[in-house]
Design a protein around this nucleic acid. Structure first.
Lengths: 127, 127
DNA sequence: ATAAGAATAGTAATCGTTACTATTCTTATT
DNA sequence: AATAAGAATAGTAACGATTACTATTCTTAT
């Protein structure tokens, strides 16, 4: 594989992720995209999701053993509710986090992955 | 399983992790502990590592699809070098990170997982 | 219209981990 | 010390998410 050429499968994978609830898994995307393309294979979904992340059209976040996808590609971090399990995006400036790391002057910091765990607004109201 | 009773396997798993380089995988621990207990099984290593994390004798951190273990159980975050792949512990106070999150007042924050990616001191000297 | 080579569907294989089962160990009670 | 209940074990099979493989179909430059 060198060039990347058009395929309706890739187009539908992207459109499907954009139409879904946030952070679907590859399997979630597979089942949803099959409504439009009943013969698409799971491998095709995986391959295209990975390519779309590579090209910057999607982002992804690891959730335990599984990877979840997101059409929100701008800078953001994640909050996970320990009760309902929902994963939501939050925005914290990297610059502010970097300031906290100024003591580690030997290392070059390129990327910050922050996952915050707690109880989301909905769940804390409910309890 | 209810009570937890003594086993030399669990004792050796713990001692082995404590004697190893930081962040061994379950398989790393398995191979090392076999020097002392040649008949220990991989499942036993996994079960005991998980129990030791539960009891707070070890901590663990996810590394891609794999889990790595650490005898350092105090509060810490992780730095991953993108060049040599090494994972090392760094200490950033949760309180300072929480201050950055004060805008998200609806959610209750219990735990902060921060992974910093970049180039470690050794690698940046080398390049 | 053609040809080169991406992309696909369908299936098999991989890898870290967990589940299962018969047997062995630990421990509390005699 | 002998016993019994039930944890823990070794060894193996199964699992789930993902990737690899292969013959076929599709896209695109000419």
């Amino acid at each position: 594989m060198a060039l990347r050429i058009y395929s309706k499968q890739r187009e539908q994978v992207l459109e499907t992720v954009k139409s879904m609830d946030p952070h679907p898994s590859a399997d979630d995307v597979y089942h949803r995209v099959r409504r439009r393309l009943p013969h698409i294979s799971l491998g095709t979904v995986y391959r295209n999701l990975n390519q779309l992340v590579e090209t910057g059209d999607l982002s992804c976040v690891r959730d335990g053993k599984m990877v979840r996808y997101d059409w929100e590609t701008g800078h953001h971090q994640h909050f996970r509710c320990e009760l309902c399990g929902v994963l939501q995006n939050v925005k914290v400036s990297n610059k502010e986090i970097m300031n906290l790391l100024s003591q580690y002057s030997g290392m070059i910091i390129n990327e910050i992955d922050l996952e915050i765990k707690g109880v989301c607004g909905d769940c804390s109201e409910r309890n």
